[in-house]
Design a protein around this nucleic acid. Sequence first.
DNA 1: TTGCTCCTCACGTCACGTGAGGTGGC
DNA 2: TTGCTCCTCACGTCACGTGAGGTGGC
Lengths: 182, 182
Amino acid sequence: MTDEPNLSVGKVAKITGLSRSTLLHYEKRGLLSPIKYGNSGYRLYNQKHLNQIERIKTYRSAGLSLENIDKLLTLTLHKSQQLLEQRLVNINDEIHQLREQQRLLLTLLQPQNKKKQSVKTVTKEQWSQMLGEAGLDEEGKWRWHSHFEKKTPEAHQDFLESLGLSETEIEKIRKKSRSIPL
Amino acid sequence: MTDEPNLSVGKVAKITGLSRSTLLHYEKRGLLSPIKYGNSGYRLYNQKHLNQIERIKTYRSAGLSLENIDKLLTLTLHKSQQLLEQRLVNINDEIHQLREQQRLLLTLLQPQNKKKQSVKTVTKEQWSQMLGEAGLDEEGKWRWHSHFEKKTPEAHQDFLESLGLSETEIEKIRKKSRSIPL
DNA sequence: TTGCTCCTCACGTCACGTGAGGTGGC
DNA sequence: TTGCTCCTCACGTCACGTGAGGTGGC
């Protein structure tokens, strides 16, 4: 029950699911400071180290860099939140980039195959058709756009981008959405 | 009008918008073979090289690795397509990972701020509400799910994931979607 | 003594960027 | 001769992985 260090790297590696080299890497980066003893240089870890490792793992699985994790482990709560929020923004950018890459690939593949042109993506036409089949007429569709735009404008932009529309086309739709009285 | 090599690295860099080091890097990786002349070792590029560079740039902006680009420049059309399609699949995986990271970050930020919990993401409730406001009743919403599921099942899965639903919840919705007669 | 775990370098990965130190052409 | 561009290494980045070569504990 005491917190005496009694775990070797190998054991910690097994417990945490990380590799030995990863553990040593975190140590070199200053994120982890196990106790060394004797002239053999063996490392010993205790429960606090395990907790620290779990925190690091959580942050890593959110895609944060070791540099930022280092800050998160020491900074104030407020600053930490800013870092996490910054990461959220970065993720949005990354997703946008990937979507653009997808669109480019689809145009590159276009000439040859027309059948499965949209692997997992939906086109504007398909979307419109589905809303129609569900029972919405043109006016209903615009009411939907309008609510979407009013409630979460950024998500609306995001959604339109996911349909592969150009910026000018998106702007048109959003403009019209805003002009409709609710 | 002949295709004599007459462009130096610096000029090619300016024309293509790539850096000198990038050009040299592509050369080292075997993607580009400018002509060297004299004992000065100066490189000269011609129009064919410029075309090659444009192809490389296109593939790079689709997120392909230099290794795969090397293959794309030599392989058969069929094999090339497979590589591009593989990249499409990878992108989907990457987007899914980023979405999971977003969800994790939101839960990490949750305790403190409840107001802007969804930066650019829409929740299931919001979505349902918007469809309702546009004029769809419960039955209409399920008709919509059903068409979505039938037309593009993978995109349906993708969409539900983007709302932050759990796998089991998604499976429930898709199952119900499939059971509705169109 | 035999395994097993541990240790410390050091180099490789990926797509470049950034110098350092030196030479060629106008 | 002065700039300007060019050249070839070589090392740094990011988060580790993979040995090599050697030592400590049961």
